[in-house]
């Protein structure tokens, strides 16, 4: 039942990414070439709206449905954040997608995004293996 709520949430978010043209290689390529500023506008408005909404959530001090506390913790900072960000950015430019939009692309019929998704799984697996070496039984 809980899983279904998350699948539905993911579907709504995937719909919004698609409607925002964030699943369009040309839009992302054009953004980095400064030829098409549409996605910069989307990201800017999204950050401002989310900031306002999260501020209201924090101020109201409410709990989530079912009484679970809402976690608003920052992601931890460490020295590899910037370098990891650069590596991610290069991949973002090469494939013209990010982790979420690659999956939404699959639903749009862009079967070629399967190559991107498999790449992401491989890169994730490699990094996880490096940071947590498999235990010897």
């Amino acid at each position: 039942m809980k899983a279904l709520v998350f699948v539905a949430s993911g579907a709504l978010f995937g719909f919004l990414l698609s409607a925002a043209r964030a699943t369009d290689y040309t839009a992302i390529h054009g953004m980095f070439l400064l030829k098409d500023l549409h996605l910069f506008g989307v990201i800017g408005v999204a950050v401002a709206t989310a900031a306002l909404g999260l501020w209201l959530v924090r101020r109201a001090g409410v709990r989530a449905l079912g009484g679970t506390p809402i976690s608003l913790a920052h992601k931890p900072f460490h020295n590899a954040v910037f370098a990891g960000g650069i590596v991610f950015g290069i991949g973002w430019a090469l494939s013209g997608t990010c982790p979420g939009t690659a999956l939404a692309q699959l639903g749009e019929g862009k079967a070629y995004a399967l190559a991107t998704v498999l790449g992401i799984v491989g890169g994730t697996w490699l990094r996880q293996r490096q940071t947590s070496p498999p235990k010897v039984a």
Partner: peptide, 22 residues
Amino acid sequence: LLVVGGALIGYGARTAGGCTSG
């Protein structure tokens, strides 16, 4: 480009602790 780009995305996101959404 898609496969290599994807791999860099996965590796970079796990190093940076998140992606464009998080």
